[in-house]
Lab assay of single mutants.
Amino acid sequence: LVRYRTISKIPQITLNFVDLKGDPFLASPTSDREIIAPKIKERTHNVTEKVTQVLSLGADVLPEYKLQAPRIHRWTILHYSPFKAVWDWLILLLVIYTAVFTPYSAAFLLKETEEGPPATECGYACQPLAVVDLIVDIMFIVDILINFRTTYVNANEEVVSHPGRIAVHYFKGWFLIDMVAAIPFDLLIFGSGSEELIGLLKTARLLRLVRVARKLDRYSEYGAAVLFLLMCTFALIAHWLACIWYAIGNMEQPHMDSRIGWLHNLGDQIGKPYNSSGLGGPSIKDKYVTALYFTFSSLTSVGFGNVSPNTNSEKIFSICVMLIGSLMYASIFGNVSAIIQRLYSGTARYHTQMLRVREFIRFHQIPNPLRQRLEEYFQHAWSYTNGIDMNAVLKGFPECLQADICLHLNRSLLQHCKPFRGATKGCLRALAMKFKTTHAPPGDTLVHAGDLLTALYFISRGSIEILRGDVVVAILGKNDIFGEPLNLYARPGKSNGDVRALTYCDLHKIHR
């Protein structure tokens, strides 16, 4: 019993810090008490220290592992850092350059016999395009090294910054494609005289377009951006097909006994025919423009016929181009109408809503002055909100995010209106959640004399007048207030005048 009563005193000691020596009952000389009392004092002292730490809000209350900052290894790049964003855009520009100039170089340097010394005699450094290609190869190699040090988000939505895990993730992902696209074939085969082989191998750079397509997928929600990307894709495919079309004609031209190829026909049409040795002929500019003209006309199913396939190889390629053109029509131009419709969806919704308003007016036989006010209010409210119901949009977000959005939407009023000066951010967040926005066209009466005042109004834009009878008592403008002081009276009061809008007004109100 003594032991039980001794232990039962522990909660009292913990909360009230009572010393055991003052209790005459606990001072009985028993061996059990002498053993338990020192333990009680020690526990009391420890609990006292913990309570003191909690009340003082000291940093040592938290466990040590929670006080440590997340460790980022040296030379690790955050995937959302500004440097990584700028670097990704730079790589994107280099990939676009590669997609345009690599097929052009591979096709127009394929057994090209233009006048001038061969590239091997001039030297590697004197070729501007080769120098640019070398810079692109170096940048792609540097990009691989950067990807080995860039964080990523795993399946659990955690940012991984450990170098080993980053390397394994990159090896399992895009490393092989990036490595093949970054191989400097110019340096590996330079001086061997195989410019045709170098041009063909350099087309491996186009593998990076797969990554670019995935990154550009984030802009699919913007109709104008999608339309622009589709047109660029169409032009890029036409450019690639033009390079292939020229390569076919250029390879067949020296081996044909009869002059029936499209390059021969082009030379005869523009007065620059090929001679018996295969030299001469149109310039590279004429060849490229004509090839691009043929691919565009074939892809769009126009086909004027002034550039036509004559050999079997050219006919087979033309059939493939027609098939590609039909697929592009289905996948690209078939979506253009939907994209344009999405661009004008706001206008369509406006006309639909206006039609419903006019049908309501016609069905209920609203008189002319009231009908005009109804239409003007709808037009003004639509121009202010673009038909978007803010309350319906915010309803799907958590309250903390709703408060931040409301604070942002009402920031101008909260910053410049005098009653809100000096208020804490928590108070402003709470008030912003209570605001209701209303609009009024010129001549609209917001409050009639004798109406119950259940709200306090803040003028965000425009001006109003307060009338008693036919006498203008006051004219209020931006950041002015009218209405009933909230919670100042037990019952809502009545208006002693009319409140009429002089201009288009936007008002925020808080109800009782």
Rank of each mutant, 00 (worst) to 15 (best):
L67A: 04
R74Q: 09
T76K: 01
T76N: 01
W89G: 04
L92E: 03
L94K: 01
I96Y: 01
V100W: 01
F101E: 09
Y104Q: 01
A107Q: 01
K111H: 15
E114H: 15
P118S: 11
A119C: 04
C126K: 01
A130Q: 05
V131C: 08
L134I: 08
I135T: 04
I135D: 01
D137V: 01
M139D: 01
D143P: 01
I146R: 01
T150R: 01
N156P: 04
H162K: 10
H169P: 01
F171I: 14
W174F: 10
I189D: 13
I189M: 12
G191H: 14
E195I: 15
K202I: 01
A204D: 01
R205N: 01
L206Q: 01
G223E: 14
L229N: 03
M231T: 04
C232T: 05
T233L: 14
F234R: 01
A235Y: 01
A235H: 01
H239Q: 01
L241V: 01
C243S: 01
I244L: 04
I248P: 01
Q253E: 11
G261S: 04
H264S: 10
L266I: 01
G267V: 03
G267Y: 01
G271Y: 02
G271V: 01
Y274F: 03
S276R: 04
G278Q: 03
L279C: 13
G280T: 03
G281R: 01
P282D: 01
T290M: 01
A291L: 01
L292G: 01
L292H: 01
L299S: 01
S301R: 07
N306Y: 01
S308I: 03
P309E: 01
N310V: 04
T311G: 01
E314V: 01
I324V: 08
M328A: 04
F333W: 06
G334H: 06
G334M: 01
A338K: 08
I339G: 03
A348T: 10
Q353R: 11
V357T: 04
I361F: 01
F363N: 04
H364Q: 03
N368F: 05
Q372F: 11
E376L: 11
W382L: 04
C400Q: 01
D404E: 03
C406N: 08
C406R: 08
H408I: 01
L409R: 03
S412A: 09
L413P: 09
C417I: 07
K418G: 09
P419T: 09
P419W: 04
F420A: 01
R421D: 07
R421Y: 06
R421M: 10
C427D: 03
L428C: 08
R429N: 01
A430Y: 07
A430R: 09
L431I: 09
M433F: 08
K436G: 09
K436R: 12
H439A: 06
P441R: 06
D444C: 08
D444I: 08
T445S: 06
V447I: 11
